[in-house]
Design a protein around this nucleic acid. Structure first.
Lengths: 134, 134
DNA sequence: GTGACACTTTACGTTAACGTAAACTTCATT
DNA sequence: AATGAAGTTTACGTTAACGTAAAGTGTCAC
């Protein structure tokens, strides 16, 4: 069974990024597509990686951070004990980051609720004034 | 009652940022400390704002985005109906962003769990090999 | 009155993450 | 054979968010 492949513009269209960005991610060592001649060919694994890169970006990860995670993961496959333990440490670190982000999000959500409430109050008062002015 | 004030270096120390950054935030219109002579004096409101800026950063907000939020909020105080409705729209937009981030975080957490499990499996196997080698 | 700090402004430098333009090559179509 | 679409490399440009150095001001301790 031959698994599906993608062209650079297919991926660009699917994830709404430019081909420039995709090539840049390769340049930074985040992607390693194969080639037919000089044309890049992306596998489903490459596609998953791209998805992970973009997800990381939405969470404020730098490309360098994401790259480190990829590298650690790849290293762990041919894993020496040292590499594996380093990976575990890093995983814990990332988990802590995510926990902090969850807290931050919760706070911001509360603030948004608060802001919306005040906002609706203000709108109500404006309506009142309209009524009494008539 | 006179409310508490802070020097720039106090804030810098408390939140572990440089004074350069704090001045930069002011330059970008995110902070408006009062002055005694040419020395900046920060109120508790300024302190809260700084906290919000940093929280925004941890969530990947740009300074420009955070600034927009501040501006909208300030405008809403002297709120015309237009301003208030714009603010409500923006609030909804931010909420959507946060929802997406929550999803992203959940996904990454799953991946971390997965990665850790595989990692521990690999370590177990290494232990096995050690045992049989003895 | 003189260090010694803490603060200030001004301004040039730096890094990350691309944008954008120029000048090819390859391949399918007309 | 020519055109056009999609791909490529090379390289300079740009923006955000500061870093860093230079040079000056204010004020407290001695």
């Amino acid at each position: 069974m031959i698994s599906k492949t993608y062209s650079i513009s297919e991926l660009a269209a699917e994830f709404d990024v430019t081909t420039r960005s995709i090539r840049f991610y390769e340049d930074q060592g985040l992607l390693h597509p194969s080639r037919r001649g000089q044309t890049r060919i992306y596998s489903s694994k490459d596609r998953v990686r791209l998805k992970l890169i973009l997800r990381g970006k939405r969470l404020g990860f730098s490309l360098a951070e994401t790259r480190e995670l990829f590298d650690l993961w790849d290293d762990s496959l041919s894993g020496s004990e040292k590499q594996l333990n380093l990976l575990l440490k890093t995983i814990d670190g990332k988990r802590a980051e995510l926990e902090q982000q969850l807290k931050d999000i919760a706070m911001v959500q509360l603030e948004l609720d608060n802001a919306e409430a005040r906002c609706r109050e203000a709108l109500k008062e404006l309506e009142q004034k309209k009524m009494t002015a008539e």
